Amino acid sequence: EPLWIRPDAPSRCTWQLGRPASESPHHHTAPAKSPKILPDILKKIGDTPMVRINKIGKKFGLKCELLAKCEFFNAGGSVKDRISLRMIEDAERDGTLKPGDTIIEPTSGNTGIGLALAAAVRGYRCIIVMPEKMSSEKVDVLRALGAEIVRTPTNARFDSPESHVGVAWRLKNEIPNSHILDQYRNASNPLAHYDTTADEILQQCDGKLDMLVASVGTGGTITGIARKLKEKCPGCRIIGVDPEGSILAEPEELNQTEQTTYEVEGIGYDFIPTVLDRTVVDKWFKSNDEEAFTFARMLIAQEGLLCGGSAGSTVAVAVKAAQELQEGQRCVVILPDSVRNYMTKFLSDRWMLQKGFLKEEDLTEKKPWWWHLRVQELGLSAPLTVLPTITCGHTIEILREKGFDQAPVVDEAGVILGMVTLGNMLSSLLAGKVQPSDQVGKVIYKQFKQIRLTDTLGRLSHILEMDHFALVVHEQIQYHSTGKSSQRQMVFGVVTAIDLLNFVAAQERDQK
């Protein structure tokens, strides 16, 4: 057995438009009618409502009807409940999964919650491996369901041993009777949507819809739904939504950006999952974080739909894509998950301010006199920076000697690579993860907040409520011999709460 199987392995699926269902090699399930009293909570997966979006479509000038398939009504709160249950049931049916076995899954959280929910009911041990950027709410729900959680670096490539995929496979090879159901490759993922989600949409719309818009992560949702719609409703256009920084969209030119990270969760990847059939997507749109969270908040405030950030991405694209539809036509959007997962993220004004998705003037509360002053007023001194090749031991000596707790790590040209902190280095040394002679590049981390000289002290204040420091950066445009230009970030300084307090105190003292 291989040590790991690539999540982007070539698909062996034989589905073709027009091929009889009787030739399918898979076990198919028909939607079942729910009894009045459910035998367990797993029976509350599927049969989610279709809700008309009344205000947002009109606000953006849509002539067509805009409908939302509300997947956050599933038992675990997301569309991923469907595939989690289906993968477990299919693994039980073919004898792969037996009582007492362990389920391991690399996930952005929602599939993990679905699997942990099913594992709690069915009696399996469950280990979820997820990147650090995923919300604390997801972690809390997983723990409450009895799952064990392993976190991995957000910026690790999918084929790196440190990625959530790599760590999951390492655990599988170490733990007896453990299984990775593997949402990236498992046919049960798109089949769950082909058999149930798509049929529900067709039934709820009486077979009449002209466009379907869905955000894409593993691709199982859009693949399964689109294949069924292509068979039953061939005139329906399928629109895929991919965040900026991901590479799922086609044509490839759409993916060209210097951005590699994004805040919206559960969609987009740096590889093409095996289950994603991009041939059934008629057109791709890219979405960005700001519009995703703005539209998610709009869905909550104006439509009462308590959905997550990827739902915002989907609707932001839908109001663009559906401009081509006329009166009497219908566009369906998939709202994948609930706001429950993001209470401390985009639902929080403070978080939105820190990330730059909300401006101070958007909030009406009274601010102190210094709130709208610029960061450049602080008069920061030149920063202490270190090269990635310097040793951890030497870096600790320098920081202690100069009285700093942290320093930016830059390359020879001064471009920011990340940050090192005294606390992080000492804990890594004590844990045996690094040696004093190791290069400081081994303990770089990139989960820090950046701020510009033109940003306000109010925004800085919000950042420092949650973080010990902020890195002050400025952009530099560099022209190359080819005539092309590129933008790079340079370090201007490091600012802490002490710097802000000293500035405010000094100004008030001078005024007296």
Results as ranks from 00 to 15, higher is better:
residue 410 V to K: 06
residue 380 L to F: 03
residue 482 T to K: 04
residue 350 R to F: 04
residue 389 T to I: 13
residue 400 R to F: 09
residue 424 N to D: 14
residue 462 H to A: 14
residue 348 S to Q: 07
residue 388 P to G: 14
residue 344 T to A: 12
residue 313 S to I: 07
residue 389 T to L: 11
residue 397 E to I: 04
residue 401 E to C: 15
residue 501 L to G: 02
residue 504 V to H: 09
residue 489 Q to Y: 14
residue 457 L to Q: 02
residue 246 S to G: 03
residue 287 S to Y: 04
residue 479 Y to I: 12
residue 249 A to G: 08
residue 506 A to C: 11
residue 259 Q to G: 12
residue 386 V to E: 11
residue 376 Q to C: 12
residue 253 E to T: 09
residue 423 G to S: 09
residue 444 I to E: 09
residue 343 M to I: 11
residue 459 R to N: 10
residue 300 I to N: 01
residue 359 K to G: 06
residue 355 K to F: 14
residue 473 V to N: 15
residue 504 V to F: 15
residue 465 E to K: 12
residue 263 E to V: 05
residue 426 L to C: 15
residue 244 E to C: 06
residue 330 R to D: 08
residue 364 T to V: 03
residue 465 E to Y: 07
residue 256 Q to C: 15
residue 365 E to T: 13
residue 416 I to V: 15
residue 466 M to I: 15
residue 380 L to K: 10
residue 507 Q to P: 14
residue 317 V to Y: 08
residue 434 V to D: 11
residue 509 R to L: 14
residue 460 L to W: 05
residue 463 I to D: 08
residue 394 H to I: 12
residue 406 Q to T: 12
residue 339 V to K: 06
residue 366 K to H: 06
residue 264 V to L: 07
residue 297 R to A: 01
residue 426 L to H: 13
residue 472 V to P: 06
residue 454 T to W: 12
residue 503 F to Y: 07
residue 339 V to A: 10
residue 290 E to T: 11
residue 491 V to H: 08
residue 491 V to Q: 09
residue 374 R to S: 09
residue 415 V to Y: 15
residue 304 G to V: 00
residue 479 Y to S: 14
residue 288 N to R: 12
residue 480 H to Y: 12
residue 293 F to G: 00
residue 285 F to D: 13
residue 423 G to P: 06
residue 347 L to M: 07
residue 402 K to Y: 06
residue 435 Q to I: 15
residue 510 D to E: 14
residue 273 P to A: 08
residue 472 V to W: 10
residue 488 R to Q: 15
residue 338 S to G: 09
residue 286 K to L: 00
residue 436 P to E: 13
residue 384 L to K: 10
residue 340 R to S: 01
residue 425 M to H: 12
residue 406 Q to L: 04
residue 407 A to C: 15
residue 477 I to E: 08
residue 388 P to C: 07
residue 424 N to E: 09
residue 297 R to V: 01
residue 427 S to K: 03
residue 303 E to G: 06
residue 498 I to F: 13
residue 262 Y to L: 01
residue 408 P to G: 08
residue 325 L to G: 05
residue 285 F to A: 13
residue 407 A to K: 03
residue 436 P to R: 15
residue 382 A to T: 13
